[in-house]
């Protein structure tokens, strides 16, 4: 049902709000987030723990109910879909998780796990399933003969992640959400998996939403990057510009905090102090103001909206850096 023109975004999130209840308190995980991803693009979503990026990823896939807002995939509103229509849509959108070993059912064989999407999608012919599974396992660099009959615990973290990627690719989806896909992996394996993701993206023509807390990792694979803090977007910009000229003080703080493997660069004196507040009681106005050196009373009164500050850069700040 692709009636839209090629220039309209593949994914459009409009004013999404996701909250959930813990005990008797409400956690404001995602507060009024809007973003767009064009077909063939990789959008990196970066933020520290508790900022709501994982929740956003799951809410986009309708795995978490949204309080309000819309998610438009290829023009169709996912939040309004139910049952069979939603299930059909799921074949076009897939998810890869952070913990590759926990993402695989420990009691099922790899062949069954990777074939599962095909079974759910109604591919009845066992031979066809087998062929497609072998094809996709080869694509991710695993030998099907040595893989299909085994159980997940026989594989390393990196190999499990390859299996998860294979499972995500077997239905030829258009869009994949990667939720911290390399954070749980060793440094030397991370590079392998990142390269694999790039290769798969090119080969299968994918669009990616890449969620991570590591800025350098995000920059390596993303065309544009969105920075999130405590449920709101701070800044959205193309990768090079974001890292060269951050406009939001939080982005600058993140960039400074990254430990650089160069002994001549002394770690900078910290510009901001303190810890992120709790998403149960986020600060009024701009949520970063409690840690921001540029905050004033306007920041406490008024929630900053995302406004463009450059040709493709937008920032939500009353006193941006540029």
């Amino acid at each position: 049902m692709m009636q839209q023109a090629a220039t309209s975004p593949l994914l459009k999130v409009e004013n999404l709000v996701v909250e959930y209840v813990v005990g008797n308190k409400i956690v404001h995980a995602v507060s009024d987030v809007s973003l767009e991803i064009a077909r063939g693009e990789t959008l990196g979503l970066v933020g520290e723990s508790g900022c709501g990026k994982s929740t956003l990823g799951r809410a986009v896939l309708q795995l978490r109910p949204a309080v309000s807002g819309k998610v438009l995939f290829d023009g169709e509103d996912l939040t309004a879909m139910q049952g069979e229509a939603l299930r059909k849509m799921r074949r076009r959108v897939q998810l890869i998780f952070q913990d590759p070993i926990a993402s695989l059912n420990p009691r099922r064989r790899i062949g069954d796990i990777v074939a599962e999407p095909l079974v759910i999608a109604g591919v009845r012919d066992a031979k066809e399933r087998h062929d497609r599974v072998c094809k996709v396992l080869n694509a991710v660099g695993l030998d099907p003969a040595l893989t299909i009959g085994r159980l997940p615990h026989e594989f390393s973290g990196g190999q499990c992640q390859r299996i998860c990627i294979a499972r995500a690719l077997v239905l030829n989806p258009e869009f994949i959400i990667c939720d911290e896909p390399v954070s749980a992996l060793d440094v030397s394996i991370r590079a392998q998996i990142l390269n694999l993701l790039e290769e798969m993206k090119a080969r299968f023509g994918l669009t990616l939403l890449f969620i991570a807390h590591d800025l350098a990792v995000v920059k390596a694979v993303s065309d544009r990057v969105a920075v999130m803090y405590l449920g709101r977007l701070c800044e959205v910009a193309p990768s090079e510009e974001l890292f060269a000229r951050p406009a939001h003080p939080y982005t600058a703080l993140l960039l400074e905090a990254i430990p650089v493997p160069d002994p001549d660069i002394k770690p900078a004196e910290r510009v901001a102090v303190g810890e992120p507040p709790s998403p149960i009681a986020p600060p009024s106005g701009c949520r970063f103001r409690t840690r921001c050196p540029r905050a004033d009373e306007r920041c406490a009164r008024e929630v900053p909206e995302l406004r463009p500050v450059g040709p493709r850069q937008s920032v939500a700040c009353h006193h941006p850096l540029t």
């Binding site: 897939q94 998780f97 926990a102 993402s103 059912n105």
Partner: peptide, 22 residues
């Protein structure tokens, strides 16, 4: 709560399928 169950949900598996096969 483990990811392989969420993965099955993300694939659009029905509750029955998740309960029985996962």
């Amino acid at each position: 709560r483990r990811e392989f169950v969420i993965a099955a949900q993300a694939l659009g598996a029905s509750h029955a399928r998740i309960l029985l096969r996962e």
